[in-house]
Amino acid sequence: MRSSIPLAQAPAVPALALDTVWFQVAGTLCNLRCRHCFIACGPTNRAHDYMDRESVRGHLREAESLGVRDVYFTGGEPFLHRDLVGILDDALRIAPTSVLTNATLLTPALVRELAALRDASRYSLEMRVSLDGITPEQNDPIRGPGTFDDTLRGAQHLSDGGFLPIITVTQTWDDADDRRLREGFHALLRARGIERPRVKILPLFKIGREASRTRGYAPEELLTPAHMDGYDPWLLQCSTSRMVTSRGVYVCPILINVPSARMAETLGASLRPFPLAHGACHTCWATGATCRN
């Protein structure tokens, strides 16, 4: 089944500004192997590798010169990276910073280090914690045995450290259950002592490991120029953000395994239009989804 169309036939989104820069700081390396992972991360996937601190610093300097508003770190699992705290220190000197984690590697001592960084910066340090169900029975088949408890323990450490973690959930259920499940997450988090639960729900991207868990994109789930008639390109994150990995600058966090989504070596050179030729582009278009907080 096709998951992309010829680039020349796809509508292009302009690069309006560089507001947000993502770093695939831990590459595609993760201590988990979630069954819906759109970039198929795992303990041995080195498709994208760790980024060293000096390399991140170089990109941060360029981002700052381009007027970046905020910075995000993801993986893989960012806390597998031994220099992550130092890298976050570098980032928080320049811009508001978010980290996307599964929280399973967080300890009270590590959270104290993060809290010290947070308190030393005038910018927000956001912690996003991925969880995919309100029970182990719902979460663990997707994210792995024991991950429900391990992740909630990490989220509690964050809460104890004065963070208000944003629990980030991939929508693996029907829209009809949306409100009930969001309320379920709130109740779960409150029961675990997280008094002010914040929950963000992301759509499923039917690529990577998810394509084999359920299905890939259908031919009709591709964008044509007509889809962009009257559509505000601002609503697509690819108009205002870029993703940096060990292999270069990509258009967005979702498409780092798509060779044509690699834009350039540098952020400055990556700010050019991008053809929305992929099934995942249809998901962003249809849901208004953004990977930002």
Binding site: D19, E64, G67, V68, R69, A95, P96, R122
Partner: peptide, 19 residues
């Protein structure tokens, strides 16, 4: 943007200077 939120802790110096 009329509906863009400029929060104190979410705007870098670099971004505000660009605006």
């Amino acid at each position: 943007r009329t509906n863009e939120f400029l929060w104190e802790s979410a705007c870098s110096d670099a971004f505000l200077l660009r605006l």
